[in-house]
Amino acid sequence: MRRLLAPLLLFAACRGEPATAADCREILDRIVALELAEQGYRDPALTRRKQEAFAQRYAAEMTRCEGVRLPAGARECVARAGSSEQISHECLR
């Protein structure tokens, strides 16, 4: 999962709006939810626990994510992404 968090820090600096703490958390939560679904886990309670655990584990990365510029349309792309790879390869580039 760490390889999927790297794009949080690699946004294009000259485009879009700065990421808020809420943006960064939404991206992380979406990646975690998609990764779990891809592994066959569909329990909402488990998803929430894992999202919280990853938010704590990657707190430093989440702090560095704040203020980094998101590409145009990134928020919408993340919301409709069908896979974690789509987020890292399409939404955040």
Rank of each mutant, 00 (worst) to 15 (best):
M1V: 12
M1Q: 09
M1A: 13
R2S: 10
R2P: 03
R3V: 14
L4Q: 04
L4D: 05
L5C: 04
L5Q: 01
A6L: 11
A6V: 10
P7T: 06
P7Q: 07
L8N: 01
L8K: 01
L9I: 09
L9V: 07
L10S: 10
L10N: 09
F11P: 00
A12S: 11
C14D: 13
C14P: 00
C14A: 08
R15G: 05
G16A: 04
G16V: 01
G16Q: 05
E17H: 05
A19T: 04
A19H: 02
T20S: 14
A22K: 10
C24A: 06
C24F: 03
R25I: 02
R25L: 10
L28W: 01
L28G: 00
D29A: 14
D29R: 10
R30G: 01
R30K: 13
I31S: 00
V32M: 03
V32W: 00
A33G: 12
A33K: 08
L34Q: 01
E35K: 08
E35M: 10
E35G: 02
E35C: 06
L36V: 06
E38S: 15
G40K: 11
G40N: 13
G40M: 09
Y41F: 11
R42V: 14
R42S: 15
R42C: 04
P44E: 08
A45S: 14
T47N: 06
R48M: 12
K50A: 15
Q51E: 14
Q51C: 06
F54A: 07
F54Q: 09
F54D: 08
A55T: 07
R57T: 13
R57S: 13
R57E: 13
A59N: 06
A60V: 11
E61P: 02
E61Q: 14
R64M: 09
R64E: 12
R64H: 08
C65A: 11
E66S: 03
E66R: 12
E66G: 02
G67P: 02
R69D: 02
L70A: 04
L70Y: 02
P71F: 01
P71I: 00
E76I: 03
R80L: 06
A81F: 03
A81S: 13
A81V: 05
S83C: 07
E85M: 07
Q86T: 14
Q86P: 01
S88T: 12
E90R: 11
L92T: 01
R93L: 08
